[in-house]
């Protein structure tokens, strides 16, 4: 598993809110680090999810060590702005005169895309860091808005600046990384449901259109397992039909019922969840060329345990069967 991203130094993880994007980014980081790859997970959100997901917290804007080979940081755009300017302007005094000036402050606040750009600039700095030499920098992209818009920021900005000035030049370098699928990977996280799957398929097209490249990897989160072996299929179908629990199995849990009916109904539901997931997974497989990793439903209450399980699952090539709680 993860063959598609194993030689990619920059890995963007994208997905709509609620699909478990941060969980999957954390699991990717943990899995790669356990393979001995030096890995940094970068967040750009005001609220960090990594402290809960990876079980360690630190101050925003500072890098923390999570485990062997595994590091995390939550980047803040205001700090990134100062850092970017520091590289473009001759001295710190000049930088301060720019950031402390009301006219330029007004300008930064009102210029679209500058925030996103300085974040990407900060991220690329980690990739270019020749002291740390990370094998992988994994970026947990913001959930709001569209990934394509975010990844297109360097191009957009370059366009708005008509290619003039150091920001535009740097934007070109960053765009070069994002466009280059031999160095940077784009990973989509989705659930095996209609909307997220459709959006992932559309994302692939939009990426091709806007960036001339596609997805490397799709992680499908919370896939329901097959409840019982296929050889019991016929017997089960007959039993649930003759008991009449197949039509509205949910009802057995809100109205008077019996233990046997509930066990049957529970399996009917589990079977329909499993089948529904398969339908959307089949659709995904038929439409995407990217590697598809199916992550099983994990039942743990602590988020870092979920990440731990998923990382183990990935590194055992899906051989771990203990996906639910033990």
């Amino acid at each position: 598993m993860l063959d598609s991203i194993k030689d990619k130094r920059l890995v963007f993880v994208t997905g709509k809110g609620g699909v478990g994007k941060s969980t999957c980014a954390a699991a990717l980081g943990a899995a790669l680090a356990r393979r001995g790859k030096k890995t940094l997970v970068v967040e750009t959100d005001a609220f960090s999810a990594m402290s809960e997901l990876l079980g360690k917290s630190g101050k925003d804007g500072t890098r923390i060590k999570i485990a062997d080979n595994l590091y995390a940081i939550n980047l803040q755009s205001d700090e990134c702005l100062v850092r970017s300017l520091t590289r473009f302007l001759p001295s710190e005094r000049v930088v301060r005169s720019v950031t402390g000036n009301r006219v330029t402050e007004a300008f930064f606040k009102s210029a679209p895309s500058v925030n996103e750009f300085v974040l990407l600039d900060g991220i690329l700095e980690f990739v270019e860091d020749n002291k740390q030499l990370y094998d992988h920098v994994i970026v947990d992209l913001p959930a709001s808005g569209h990934a394509v818009t975010f990844l297109n920021v360097p191009d957009t900005l370059n366009q708005m600046m008509r290619g003039v000035g150091p920001f535009a030049k740097r934007a070109k370098v960053i765009a070069g990384w994002i466009h280059d699928s031999s160095r940077a990977a784009i990973v989509a996280v989705c659930l095996p449901e209609e909307m997220p799957v459709q959006e992932t398929i559309e994302l692939e097209d939009k990426l091709e259109e806007a960036l001339g490249r596609g997805l490397e990897l799709t992680m499908v989160n919370m896939v329901h397992p097959r409840p019982f072996p296929a050889r019991f299929g016929t017997a089960f179908k007959e039993a649930s039909e003759s008991a009449g629990v197949n039509v509205d199995p949910t009802k057995e849990f809100s109205e008077e019922s019996t233990a046997t009916r509930r066990v049957l109904a529970g399996n009917v539901l589990a079977m329909s969840w499993y089948k529904r997931d398969r339908t959307y997974l089949d659709l995904l497989h038929s439409k995407l060329d990217a590697e598809i990793v199916e992550l099983p439903m994990v039942y743990e209450t602590e988020e870092n345990d979920i990440v731990d399980r998923l990382a183990n699952f990935i590194n055992s090539d899906g051989q771990t069967t203990e996906t639910l709680a033990s």
């Binding site: 302007l89 000049v94 720019v98 330029t104 300008f107 009102s110 600046m161 000035g165 920001f167």
Partner: peptide, 18 residues
């Protein structure tokens, strides 16, 4: 100063467009 600095960072045309 402001003109020079902003123009230097963003390019004059972007500043003018904004």
């Amino acid at each position: 100063v402001v003109n020079t600095l902003l123009g230097r960072i963003f390019g004059d045309s972007f500043v003018q467009d904004l």
